[in-house]
Structures are given as structure tokens and as C-alpha cells.
């Protein structure tokens, strides 16, 4: 299968990329790592007239430590995040979720920015980014704006990033010393999440002092499991606490029904997986 013909440009700066996005080509797509877009082009589910390849923009790479914040360039690959000591230490939930994405070849090419803007509800990095209260920096012709992860995802495959904008970097408040776990449910080794649960929590003096829980594929966007978070905070990190929190995991969700399972099955999975994820997060 061969994509429909398109024009191609590979700018070397964010400013040039934004200029290219403002050109009068009929349908413009941004190419990041291409691990979702190229299959879509090959199947001709999309046929853009111009592809703006942001893979040569150096300022979009790199993982940096900015005091209380970890800053990840949008073009950072999954493999780079999985290997990063900074990510493992300060955003361990993201490091663990990244390891579950697709396969090693895809992780070598796929990028954090690409995954977030693609906004597949079954994508594994969206819920962790939401749970970690990240901020996303979006650049356009009028400069940059910063969007909270909670306001970034608007619907299935839809984010707040406009047609003439690109996501440049992701700012994650450090969660140093927090336990975490990403529990993903699939039927075969290499599959999109049927659902997944990301938990990160802090234990102080034998009590869970803070807890953040994100759900993958339990709605058209990633969502926080607020009821689970409330059920955890202030409690001892025991099996009892985990099962009480897990019991409310499906509250406020609106899971899809598809060939992998119906909505009720996903609600059931959310409870089971939340219990497992909380228990694992407590121990690391």
C-alpha cells in the first residue's frame, strides 16, 4: 500500500514549521515520528496535500531538568524516555507506561508529542500525562501558549492544538519519590490498550498523602479517576484500601463498546486493574 501523493517540507525551526502550516496547501498534516500517521496515509484514511515533517527541528528534542519541572521536547521518542534517568526518577508513571507502547521498533520512532496530538483514546501516554498534571506548550503564529493537560484533550483524536499550531514541549511537575504503576490490559502481546490504569501515589509516614489516577480508553479522552484518588488519600497503603478504591474506579467513565469488549466489561476491568495498579504502585 502506498500513500496518495503529497508535497513535503522538512523545516529546521519551529518558526519555519508554523510558516509552512500557514501556507495555502489544501490539507496540511504535521509528521512527527509517523508511527500512527504513516499507517493512516498508507491506508489512505487521510490524504493530505502537504506534509510538514518536524523531525529535523532540533529545538523539539531533549529532556531537561528545570528545578521543580521536567521538560520533555515534543519530538522525544518513546525509547529516549524509557532510557531517561530523569523520567524514571521524576515521572516514573510515564517511564512505565512508555515501556508498554507497541514494540521496540515503534518506540524508536514514535514521539511523545506525536502521541499526545494524535490523541487516540487507547494511546498509553495520554492518561499518565493527565495524571501527572503536565502542562503542554503550544506554539503558533502569535507565540506560545501553555495548556493544562486537563484542558488539552477535547475528544477522540481531537486536541486544543489548532491547524496552524504545533505542540513544542511537555512540562511535568516532578513527582520525585512517588510510587507508580501502569496496568495495561490486552489480549495479545502487541495491541492497543483495551483499557489501562495509571496510578502514581506518595506514601508519607504510613499514609497515602497524595494519589493521582488516570484511565486509558475509558472515555473518548483520557480521564482522571477522581473517586479513586479520594478513596486513597489519607488511608494506609493496604490491600483493603486498594480494594475500596478499586470499587469506585468506573465512576464517571463512559467507555466504548467495540469488538474487544462492551462498556460493562470495560467498567469491570477498570475496577480489577485499579486494584492491581494501586497495590503495585504502593510497592514501587
Amino acid at each position: 500500500m502506498i500513500p496518495a501523493a503529497f508535497d513535503y517540507t522538512a523545516p529546521e525551526s519551529v518558526a519555519d514549521a508554523i510558516t509552512a502550516l500557514g501556507s495555502d496547501s489544501e490539507e496540511i498534516k504535521v509528521l512527527a515520528g509517523g508511527q500512527s500517521l504513516i499507517p493512516v496515509l498508507r491506508l489512505r484514511l487521510a490524504a493530505p496535500t502537504l506534509l510538514v515533517d518536524i523531525g529535523r527541528i532540533r529545538e523539539l528534542g531533549g529532556i531537561t531538568d528545570e528545578g521543580n519541572t521536567l521538560v520533555i521536547g515534543a519530538m522525544t521518542t518513546h525509547a529516549e524516555m524509557a532510557d531517561s534517568e530523569l523520567v524514571k526518577e521524576h515521572a516514573s508513571l510515564l517511564a512505565k507506561a512508555v515501556e508498554t507502547v507497541a514494540d521496540p521498533q515503534v518506540r524508536h520512532r514514535g514521539t511523545l508529542g506525536g502521541a499526545l496530538v494524535h490523541a487516540d483514546p487507547a494511546g498509553d501516554l495520554l492518561a499518565p500525562i493527565l495524571a501527572l498534571d503536565a502542562e503542554l506548550v503550544v506554539a503558533g503564529a502569535d507565540g506560545e501558549r501553555t495548556v493544562a493537560a486537563a484542558d488539552f484533550f477535547e475528544d477522540m483524536f481531537t486536541t486544543t492544538v489548532g491547524e496552524n499550531e504545533i505542540l513544542t514541549r511537555i512540562r511535568i511537575p516532578k513527582h520525585t519519590g512517588w510510587g507508580s504503576h501502569y496496568e495495561k490490559f490486552t489480549r495479545v502481546a502487541q495491541q492497543w490498550s483495551i483499557i489501562a490504569v495509571g496510578v502514581t501515589l506518595k506514601v508519607d509516614g504510613g499514609v497515602i498523602s497524595q494519589a493521582k489516577v488516570g484511565l486509558t480508553n475509558m472515555s473518548s479522552t483520557p480521564i482522571r479517576a477522581s473517586a479513586v484518588e479520594q478513596a486513597l488519600v489519607g488511608q494506609a497503603p493496604t490491600a483493603d484500601t486498594a480494594s475500596r478504591a478499586a470499587a469506585v474506579a468506573a465512576e464517571g467513565t463512559n467507555p466504548p463498546t467495540d469488538t474487544n469488549g462492551d462498556a460493562n466489561y470495560r467498567r469491570h476491568l477498570a475496577k480489577v486493574l485499579t486494584g492491581r495498579a494501586v497495590q503495585a504502585a504502593v510497592s514501587g
Partner: peptide, 10 residues
């Protein structure tokens, strides 16, 4: 990499 999922220009 999977060379069916990389453009030659990349």
C-alpha cells in the same frame, strides 16, 4: 525501525 513505517525522505 519498521521500514514500511518510515518515509524514505525521513
Amino acid at each position: 525501525v519498521k521500514s514500511c513505517t518510515v518515509l524514505a525522505v525521513q
